[in-house]
Amino acid sequence: MNLESLAPPSDPAMPRRLSSVRWRLMLAVPLATAVAVALFAWSAGGFAPVAGGWERAGWMVLLLSAIQLLLIEAMLLRPLRRLAAGCEAMESAPLPLTPEDAAPTPGQAAELDRIGHAMRRVRGSLWQQDQDARELRRELSQQRLLLEQAHTALEANQRELASLARTDALTGLANQRAFDEALRREFKRAQRQRGLLALAVIDLDDFKRFNERYGADVGDAALQRIAALLDERFKRDTDVVARLGGEEFVALLPGFGMAEAQNVLELLRDDLRTLRLPDGEGSLTVSIGLAAASPAHPYLSAQALMQAADEALYIAKHAGRDRLSLAA
C-alpha cells in the first residue's frame, strides 16, 4: 500500500490565489491613497489649480502606495505563503501506520519507563495520603465524642455544684445563700401585695453538750432527723426551710401572720419532744424566735424582719429555753 496516497491532496491553486490577491492590492491601494490625498487637499483649501501641485500630489500618492504595499507584503502576504508552504509539507508527509514505524526509540522507551515509575510513585503517595486522612478523620471523630462526653460531664458537675451552692450538704435543706435570696424575694412580694410573711428562727437547746455526750456522728444523725421533721411540717410550695449553720434552722412562711405561724410552731415543738433520735439516745428541745410582717405591723427591710426574729430567739434562750418567743 502506498502511504502517500492516504495523505490529503494539496491545494495547487494556493499560489495562484496569493498572486491574484497581490495584483488586486497593487490596484486598490494606489486608488485608495489617491482618494485620501484628494480629500485631504480639498479639506485644506479646495481643488484650486496650483503650479506643480498636481505633480507633487502624484508623487505623494506613489510614495504612500509603495510604502503600504511593502508593509502588506512583509506583514501579511509573506507569512501567508509560509503558512501555506507548511500546510502543504504537513499534508504530504507520510503517516507511520506500521508497528515498526510507531515503535519508540530506546531513548523514548527509557523516558516512558521513568514517567511510568514516577506515576506509580505518585499513585502510591496519594493512596497513603488517603489512608492517613481516613485515620485522621477517625481520630477526630473519637476526639469529638470524648469532647462531647467531657462537656456533658462538665455540665452535670456544674449543676451539682450549683445545687451544692444552694443546698446544705448534711441535711439537704436550703443553705444560708438560698435562704437570703428567698427572704429578699418574699419580703418584696409581701410589701408589693400588702400580704403576710412570718419568719421563725429555730435553735436546738444544748446541742454542743449533746454532741459531747453521744458523739458527732449521733449529732449529725439527729440534725438529719430534725431537718426531715421540719421539711415535713412546712411542706407548702411557698414555704422555705433552711439550715443557717450548726444547730440553727429557719422557716420562712409566706401568707402566715403571727397567730397562724405560732400555732404551727407549737405543733413542731410537740413533735420534736416525741421524735425518736438515732439509737434512742437522749432527747432534744428547741427555742424559737418568731417575727411576722403585715400591713398593720410592717418592717422597713428584710434584714429588719430577720433581726426581730433573732432578738425573739435571744429572749427565748435567756428565758429558760424550750419555748417560743414572739417579736414585739
Rank of each mutant, 00 (worst) to 15 (best):
S5C: 03
A13R: 15
P15C: 05
R22E: 07
R24Y: 06
L27I: 14
L27Y: 06
V37R: 01
A38P: 03
P49F: 09
E55Q: 15
R56Y: 04
V61Y: 02
S65C: 11
I72R: 04
A74P: 04
L80A: 15
A84F: 10
M90S: 06
P94W: 06
P104F: 06
T105A: 08
Q108P: 04
R114P: 13
R120L: 10
L126R: 15
A133Y: 10
E139A: 11
Q142C: 07
Q143A: 10
T152D: 15
S163L: 14
L170S: 08
L173K: 11
F187I: 04
A198W: 03
L199C: 07
V201R: 15
L204Y: 09
K208C: 08
R213M: 06
G215P: 05
G219Y: 03
R225C: 11
I226P: 03
A228D: 09
F234T: 00
V241D: 01
L244Y: 00
L244T: 00
G245D: 08
A259W: 00
N263A: 10
D271C: 09
T274K: 05
L277M: 13
S283C: 13
T285V: 02
I288G: 01
G289E: 03
L300W: 04
D310V: 01
K317A: 02
R321T: 01
D322M: 00
A327V: 04
